[in-house]
Amino acid sequence: MPFLGDKFAATDETLMYKIQQGDEQAFATLVDRHLTPLYNFIYRILNHPTDSEDLVQDTFLRVWDHSQQWKSRENATVSTWLHKIAYHLCIDYLRRRHPIDYLSEEEMEQIPASTQIMDSLQELEVSREVEKALQDLPTRQKTALVLCYYQDLSNQEAATVLGITVSALESLMARGRKTLRQKLQLADLLGEVS
């Protein structure tokens, strides 16, 4: 029942309707629910803790300011919408952070996989090595993998966040995994796990 202190019972969609009416309690509940997953997502794209927190904050404030724009649809859950806002903020941030040497996705994908990894063949723990390999991926490949692998979004939802088709998403993920495999094989990590 929505009127009986529905912090745990209310769906994200119900919370959004309430936020559209200016309900701060509903907003706080939405923040509680999505803060950590959203932070994880942004952190994995930016690899910068402080800036990731700033972008999480900006994402939620945008939700508050633009709550009227949200509409419930079959393939557009609140989580998808949040990820989409966060993704666009990440893209803006990356463009601002590298205004001069920013390369387009196409340009970045032309870079041979092996050029960026030779400096990472030190004795680092496995997770750091994999994290670095992930960070070196082109943003869209990385985002596709993070959305499907770590954020547990369905292929449809991930495709919606990126604004592409499911086929294009699969292609991005396959290229991302292939590059990761090459990098981690060079780092001799794929031989370590069986």
Binding site: T36, Y39, N40, Y43, R44, P49, S52, V126, S127, V130, E131, L134, L145, Y149, Y150, L180, L184, L189, L190, V193
Partner: peptide, 9 residues
Amino acid sequence: LLDAVSAPK
């Protein structure tokens, strides 16, 4: 290997 990446908080 992907699972080995820790989740930040």
